[in-house]
Write a protein that binds this DNA or RNA. Structure first.
Lengths: 220, 220
DNA sequence: AACTTTATTTAGTCTTATCTAAATATTATT
DNA sequence: AATAATATTTAGATAAGACTAAATAAAGTT
């Protein structure tokens, strides 16, 4: 089955929301993430239900079927592989990657995406630390420790970021942060939680608000 | 101005046809290349005319304005850069490249395309020998000698192909032909024009029908 | 339990891009 | 020049995806 660009975005939004909450996805929540009216969403839910991509009961919200989830995972794979390409091969800045990948993920060819995967060396994570499903849809979950949980004197590797808004990404790249780097916590301000870190031989400070969007894996 | 996917295809078709004929493009010709009905084409021509992308007089056909031509050339640039990427970086076969590039050319970001250009090393020609416009829209025309004009004993470089149907491309790649290769004409059959060539130390034969789709540049 | 608020769906429109059939221009032919 | 053939446009419909406003269902509150 061939999905339209728009149908794909609905499927993607459904997977995103139900992965977060674990529950049925409500019409309003989906409308909010897609920036559409609830009425439009209702129409599309009926359509996707007729195509067996979701289970949908009026007033009860929707959830992807197994088949729908397969489609969504394939989109995730495409999106994340393109992100790797944009960031690593083309040197496009962190904060510009997301918008472009959102267009590229709709390119249909499976041949293309498998060749891209091979070209990139079958990466397991994208530049934001999100796992990349393989051609069979399998992927490894990433570590989920927050930078705010790091203890003073301890060293860790930055493995991902939770937020993706371009201003946030710009902020932290200006501080010199990127995925794969090693950092050591020097101190945490007891009043507002501001962190002082050693990163790439330089001392930097990060507000608690920012630090809780950053994921780490402790070394050792 | 932002063009829709569909508008872009019309602009592309218009440039293609008027470059070939040098004349105004007729509704029917455009309908044939886009595989649409003439009625649909008439509607779109009115729309593009209102946007000042074409000059259009009912019953007299259409032609791109300077602005329209700029858009079309930008599409050509994107299409051909993606072709280089698909063929050279991803090792996708000649005959599969065109279809994928036709989807990729609609991705909007200029940032993306300029980074792609740099990544590929600012190529001047695509894998079919077509010139690639630079960011300012300038490009060098390619040599236009046909392989059928080559004299026996003379050596030349294959610089392009005129046809792009996937069966043709598959046929010649199976014979071992690709752009950039050197070949020497051994003989031409006086009855049906079949050519015998020395290519990569092997002797191959090509029908006249096929040979006249291949472009060469003589060496020396 | 009745009422209020919130969420969701239905009804009716709009836009874009397509189509077929009918009407009208243009071009070619006798 | 009149007629036949061809090309193009107009008219009217359709499908996808969006919207607003109105109706209805579900959840929350007194």
């Amino acid at each position: 089955m061939e999905l339209s660009h728009v149908e794909e975005n609905y499927i993607k939004g459904l997977q995103h929301l139900s992965t977060q909450s674990g529950k049925q996805v409500s019409t309003n929540d989906l409308a909010a993430t897609l920036r559409n009216s609830a009425a439009s969403v209702t129409d599309m839910l009926k359509k996707l239900s007729k195509k067996s991509l979701i289970n949908y009961e009026p007033y009860q919200g929707a959830r992807l079927t197994e088949q729908g989830n397969k489609f969504a995972t394939r989109l995730l794979r495409k999106n994340r592989l393109w992100k790797v390409f944009l960031y690593q091969s083309l040197n496009i800045r962190w904060e510009d990657v997301r918008e472009i990948a959102e267009e590229l993920e709709h390119i249909k060819s499976d041949l293309l995406i498998d060749h891209l995967d091979a070209f990139l060396g079958y990466p397991k994570f994208d530049p934001f630390g999100e796992p990349i499903p393989n051609a069979q849809g399998k992927y490894t979950l990433r570590a989920q420790t927050l930078l705010t949980e790091l203890r003073p004197g301890i060293t860790a590797i930055i493995v991902g970021v939770k937020a993706t808004e371009s201003n946030f990404l710009k902020h932290i790249s200006e501080k010199g942060i990127s995925v794969g780097q090693t950092c050591t916590l020097i101190s945490r301000d007891p009043y507002d939680g501001t962190l002082t870190l050693l990163l790439d031989r330089k001392e930097i400070t990060l507000s608690g608000q920012v630090a809780k969007q950053i994921l780490i894996k402790s070394t050792g």
